[in-house]
Design a protein around this nucleic acid. Structure first.
Lengths: 325, 325
DNA sequence: TATGGTATGTCAACCGTTTAACATGTTTGA
DNA sequence: TCAAACATGTTAAACGGTTGACATACCATA
């Protein structure tokens, strides 16, 4: 592939001058600039980003460590992150831990090797993990991490509370709470706390069903949910920790001949594509994923510019009323 | 961050020797090897992949250009590709075109700049596009591309035929065919052809509904499907070009009080996570995405080794019987 | 004792680009 | 007419690692 040297030769200029054109440094005449552009065109030249990165001592790549790609929530998150990164001229290096032990640590090392401009972690493989002297900003997303430079969250507690409010307002008096538990303390765990707290305050009965830590996307909650609903017939409301759980709750309800939202009201969490593809569509708690993703990139930029970054940035959530309440 | 030189100094060795340890070249005593390892450990050393790539004149990064991330099918595909890449020691650079014009071309240039080891394209932004002198193998996935080194496909025609077969076997005599059309000629278009051909051969009536090219994931087919079903009441079967379409068809059927699979049988395409989360679950055509993803990486490896690669590799599809037929 | 394998060091070139220092012109304007 | 701005060139070092040529040992074995 053509190099700067080739372009210089083709344009009858020195490498220094061509580099000036590329980087907009120093004085350049319009004529020379055009000459360089046509030479680049003719040679089908693309600057070698690898050499550039080495010379500049930084890349324009951001690392992403996710627990899953296929799960609708993470698919949405990755999509938003890719877009936000692209808009800031970053490229995205994607890693997925799939709940496999040690993957996360390896990926962090891979990011170090590749000298990424920043790293966004949303995975939860390792219980506690301190990453020091990374050499680039570390942003944790919906996860507490001692060594992160910044943490982007949404108000999970409030989301749980809002869900409870909605179900109670629609007349539910005996509500099931279906949520996955994490091995580590994750912010998402507080959804349940917020929910239970709100119910307690209004003296609404709650019955909990906790799922073991989700290891892979293949984990199905359906059998547990079905059993739970059979065992607790009087339930008239269901708070689900994610839209996936809500979708399976709907399946169980249909299976048992319980009509939604007449006899049972269901509320999900995440506002993913899935919440629009079930029947009825899922009333859910919306997380401003797009804005949160943009904030992640923003925080990396800021940190790299030596600007101040807050330890935690917490976003509001909102209720999206669809068909299940 | 620590460099090779630092490690050499710490271990009391020359840079050359340390490099030998890292790359398993020449003679190295066990003692020296351990000395290098402990020094690396102590300095928290990670080889600079950027410098390595420049020196070796190749990266271990594979570029991915997708049309969408959030769409369940592409989420699944990206997931499989990430895994397959990781298993071969590749990292994945993810780009998403979102149906925006020219994005694809820009992404290809970005991949050239980053000197990727190979590029997998599944996008369809530009009608015709020839990429020449890329400097790395180009694999197209479910897409025809003149300039690609290899094309990985599944037997869409056969998938359409199988779907028809299933619906007819289950008693359908008047079948709707709901599918998106691409502006460019895409392999997926042949699903419909296979389906229609099989119906014609068995003299089964078909009624088509074509959706305009899908530009973003936000495109909802629901209104069109609902209208279509109202207008064509006698329909007892539905072939859908994707699971998303099938999910929306189910919504429309429930809305109209048409019970599935009793009065209407529906068959989807892709076998994504979504097909397990609707009620009833979607009978669908399974694509061996995992194997196809592995093949993509394999073809890049082969091409880079100077091995022969077939122009097209076509995979079998299969029917997954769930609840809608 | 000579040979060849083992183990390490030194040195230099190279990958493609950036950047600074410095030199050498040509224009332009006050 | 002289200084400042403009335009380009030359040269060299730097980024961090790879690789090959070559030198220098030590040690075992035939």
């Amino acid at each position: 592939m053509a190099t700067l040297k080739d372009v210089a030769k083709a344009a009858g200029l020195s490498v220094g001058t061509v580099s000036r054109v590329l980087n907009n440094r120093g004085y350049i005449s319009e004529e020379t600039r055009q000459g360089v552009y046509t030479a680049m065109e003719r040679l089908n030249y693309q600057p070698n980003e690898v050499a550039r990165s080495l010379s500049r001592q930084k890349t324009n790549t951001i690392g992403l460590i996710m627990p899953s790609i296929e799960h609708p929530y993470f698919a949405k998150l990755i999509s938003c992150l890719e877009r936000a990164a692209y808009e800031r001229e970053y490229k995205v290096l994607l890693f997925c831990a799939y709940g496999i032990d040690d993957q996360e640590k390896k990926f962090v090392e891979a990011c170090r090797s590749n000298r990424v401009a920043g790293l966004i972690i949303c995975s939860d493989t390792v219980r506690t993990q301190t990453f020091n002297n990374l050499g680039f900003p570390l942003v944790s997303y919906e996860r507490y991490l001692d060594s992160s430079d910044a943490c982007v969250l949404c108000d999970n507690h409030e989301g749980g509370r809002m869900a409870a409010q909605e179900l109670i307002a629609k007349g539910c008096r005996r509500i099931g709470c279906l949520s996955g538990t994490s091995r580590v303390g994750m912010p998402a765990d507080t959804r349940k706390e917020g929910f239970l707290e709100a119910c307690r305050q209004q003296e609404i009965e709650t019955i909990e069903l906790d799922f073991p830590p989700e290891r892979t996307i293949d984990t199905r909650y359906y059998p547990d949910i079905l059993e739970f609903m059979k065992k607790n017939e009087g339930i008239d409301g269901l708070f689900c920790g994610s839209d996936v759980i809500a979708a399976e709750a709907i399946q169980a309800a249909v299976e048992l001949g319980v009509s939604i939202p007449d006899r049972l009201k269901v509320i999900g969490y995440d506002d993913t594509l899935l919440s629009e593809l079930t029947m009825p569509k899922i009333t859910t708690i919306h997380q401003p994923v797009k804005e949160m993703a943009e904030m992640c990139i923003d925080l990396i930029d800021k940190k790299n510019n030596g600007d101040f970054v807050p330890a935690r940035t917490i976003f509001h959530v909102s209720l999206v009323n669809r068909g299940t309440t």
